[in-house]
């Protein structure tokens, strides 16, 4: 597989993600998620930790590159993993502070978006495996799948905790 193909593939993924985010942004423009002051504070903290995680990933890449420990592809991999970890940190911190995508307002649509993302990122690697080909960059899609599964698990845990909290309040 030529390097142009790989570059085009990564560029395609990035552009695809951008288009999805832009579509979601346009769809939510009329009804923007409303966060209260505690949720805004929690999101700011989540952003800080996500930023630090991403910086940590880039720092590892910098060290690996300067020490020539990893080749170019491996550094790209570490960089991508750092960004995915950063996204996981942001999602988990906001989920556990009830400050992510209005958790209680539209849980079905949130889960739907995550499941669509999960399916979309499974189609390419599974399709290529069924065709007997192994795409070297398919691990990116699998890593995104892992990220989405972690987010969904955290979402489920938080939903269970909130349900228990609601029960406790109704008992009081």
């Amino acid at each position: 597989m030529s390097s142009e193909y790989k570059l085009g593939f990564v560029l395609g993924v990035v552009i695809g993600l951008f288009l999805v985010m832009a579509t979601i942004g346009i769809m939510n423009r009329k009804k923007k998620w409303q966060y209260d002051e505690r949720q805004k504070l929690a999101r700011a903290k989540a952003m800080k930790w996500a930023y630090l995680t991403a910086v940590g990933g880039f720092f590892i890449c910098l060290i690996a590159d300067s020490a020539e420990l990893l080749n170019h592809e491996q550094i790209m991999g570490v960089m991508t993993a750092g960004m995915l970890c950063s996204a996981i940190v942001f999602a988990c911190v906001t989920i556990h502070n009830d400050a992510w995508m209005a958790l209680n307002e539209k849980p079905k649509s949130v889960i739907g978006i995550l499941l669509i993302g999960l399916a979309a990122n499974l189609i390419l690697p599974l399709g290529s495996l069924m065709m007997g080909e192994v795409i070297s960059t398919m691990w990116i899609n699998l890593a995104v799948c892992v990220m989405l599964v972690i987010i969904l698990i955290n979402y489920g845990i938080r939903r269970a905790v909130l349900r228990r909290g609601n029960d406790e309040e109704s008992e009081a």
């Binding site: 409303q34 209260d36 002051e37 505690r38 949720q39 009830d98 209680n104 909130l162 909290g165 309040e169």
Partner: peptide
């Protein structure tokens, strides 16, 4: 105009609200 979890957090003492809230 806040979330239920925010009221719960204030009652539990997990969150210090601003003067406006």
């Amino acid at each position: 105009g806040v979330s239920r979890q925010t009221i719960s957090a204030i009652e539990k003492g997990d969150y210090n609200p601003t003067i406006n809230l």
